[in-house]
Write a protein that binds this DNA or RNA. Structure first.
Lengths: 121, 121
DNA sequence: CTGCATCCTACATGATACTG
DNA sequence: CAGTATCATGTAGGATGCAG
């Protein structure tokens, strides 16, 4: 596990641009869950995968998820410092409903696009 | 169908106060879905059930849902005017994932509360 | 590398008053 | 009844720079 995360893990056409009526926590919480699904990863790895979110926002997201028990933050006492974030059992349990929401979005995105196109006034 | 909506349809203790990491659309979208699940209802009925949301916010929510094809707006040409909002098939299909999210929240709310209590620093 | 401090903008939400 | 118009506010999200 813990293969390095790809910067193209979330190509725009397939994720951000699709009308997604569901939100999990903050704007980035769902994506962090997906990033950590295969094992722990580091701060900068997450930054790259999440299209260079600003460190402030990423820190806030991670702190909130840690506070709610969705992930753990592990500091390895090395130089240079290494910090790893990994999902807890509770955090992992979020992935089921998250998948349900994503499946819905995948299946019904065309209908939403059509409805928006047909909407006038 | 279309029994009048109760003002206590969403008692605070059971909904708004529970930590809910999921969001469907805007803040009120999920609650509108629940209100319309049993059939069409009127603007003011929705206002009452949703704890007297301001008309501006309710209008914005309903317009957005209409635009995305989740509900239909029907104007009955009477006096006084009567407008009814009802779910489309697409809107109804949102209820499945919504239930999944709510079930998750119900089951794991205690763990989140515990994690928040244990969180220090 | 990690992530805090500061400042800033945009949007979501809301209160209040008014109209056909 | 079913909204619209206007104004106000809080918070999420982001840009930039600096520190351990």
């Amino acid at each position: 596990m813990t293969e390095p995360l790809s910067a193209d893990m979330f190509p725009d056409a397939d994720c951000a641009d699709r009308p997604m009526p569901f939100r999990v926590g903050g704007k980035w919480t769902g994506w962090v869950l997906r990033c950590l699904d295969d094992g722990p990863h580091r701060f900068t790895e997450l930054r790259v995968a999440l299209h260079w979110v600003t460190p402030k926002v990423l820190t806030e997201t991670l702190r909130a998820m840690e506070r709610d028990g969705f992930l753990t933050r592990t500091v390895h006492d090395e130089n240079p410092p290494r910090v790893e974030y990994g999902l807890t059992v509770l955090g992992r349990s979020l992935i089921g409903p998250l998948d349900g929401a994503c499946d819905w979005a995948r299946r019904h995105a065309p209908e939403i696009a059509e409805a928006r196109g047909a909407y006038r006034s």
